[in-house]
């Protein structure tokens, strides 16, 4: 009796597997790719200035003792517009926000900042996504929290909203 039951076991397992396949097919493939660089030192990079009047960004700027936000953005990125007011608020609270402009042009950036405001202390250009790849970032916008010793503390994927301010301030070691 027990053996007969055992005979059906492979079929039952097969059915379970088919069920899992079905569920897997129904679930849309939408992975949020988290950077493996969080908790590691900021890789060595030098991003030339994207705008004439504003400095670019380099790794050495993140070892000066003050934590900073490193915002990966682009003027062609629609959701990036939504986070500018929040970044401006953070700036008003004394947070240093730097930008890395991915695949961008000076003119497009200038009009983007003229329209939305400029929360950035430094803006570096990254025409070939080299810095983005070094950081393990897979899209725009993304915001990295870098502590004063050049360590990547946190990666925020997507738009920074009002609701994220307390968390970011906490990570930056600032009391609200």
């Amino acid at each position: 009796m027990k053996r007969k039951w055992l005979l059906w076991l492979p079929f039952a397992l097969g059915l379970v597997l088919l069920g899992l396949f079905y569920v897997g097919l129904k679930k849309p493939e939408d992975h949020i790719i988290v950077s493996r660089m969080v908790g590691k030192p900021l890789p060595l990079f030098t991003a030339p200035a994207a705008l004439p009047g504003q400095p670019g960004a380099a790794t050495a700027d993140y070892r000066m003792g003050k934590p900073r936000l490193l915002n990966i953005f682009a003027s062609w990125c629609v959701p990036c517009v939504a986070e500018v007011p929040v970044l401006l608020r953070l700036k008003a609270m004394g947070v240093e926000v730097d930008g890395i402009a991915v695949h961008d042009t000076t003119e497009a950036l200038q009009s983007f900042l003229a329209r939305n405001g400029n929360p950035y202390t430094r803006i570096g250009r990254d025409d070939q996504s080299r810095i983005q790849l070094m950081l393990g970032s897979s899209g725009v916008p993304e915001t990295f929290v870098i502590d004063g010793r050049g360590m990547i503390v946190h990666q925020h994927i997507g738009v920074v909203s009002e609701a994220d301010i307390p968390k970011l301030l906490g990570l930056l070691g600032q009391q609200k």
């Binding site: 493939e29 939408d30 695949h103 996504s129 080299r130 983005q132 790849l133 897979s138 899209g139």
Partner: peptide
């Protein structure tokens, strides 16, 4: 490809995939 997630970077038109191929 980290943008168009089902595709290998060899067959993707995304900017980032091109940048990965270059590197």
């Amino acid at each position: 490809c980290v943008v168009c997630q089902g595709q290998p970077i060899s067959g993707s038109n995304a900017d980032l995939a091109g940048d990965m191929r270059r590197i």
